[in-house]
Amino acid sequence: MSFYMELVDMKVLTANRLDDGAVVYIGKAAPWVEDLASALVAVDAGAEGQLTETAAAAVKARRVVGAYLMPVTVEDGRILPASVRERIRAAGPSNRPDLGKQALAPALPR
């Protein structure tokens, strides 16, 4: 882990999509993406505030439920959730590599 990363609190905003429950993130290019790799990483309080506002609006607009910020690290350009729980959410059940997002994209290292 670099010095930089120890100092900066990096976060991604995640939620579940209302109509089908799928795990989604606020993305760099689109408001809600399914793939963590395309998520927007907030590196300061201002950016976090913006993510939170976008999410609140999306909750109100009935696009997502249960929105929250989750801590991540970025290693070699890859976004890695800090917790095991979020790694599993981002990939799918660890006993079923054929299911969840990992079935489409290569599994995240755990």
């Binding site: 579940n16 089908d20 429950g21 799928a22 795990v23 909750v59 439920v65 249960g66 729980r85 599993i88 959410r89 799918g92 059940p93 969840g100």
Partner: peptide, 20 residues
């Protein structure tokens, strides 16, 4: 969601890690 949650739970519908 706050209004809906107790109604869906009465029918066994939860929201979990990956989906409902």
């Amino acid at each position: 969601e706050d209004q809906f949650k107790p109604l869906r739970l009465m029918n066994g519908l939860y929201l979990q890690l990956h989906a409902y």
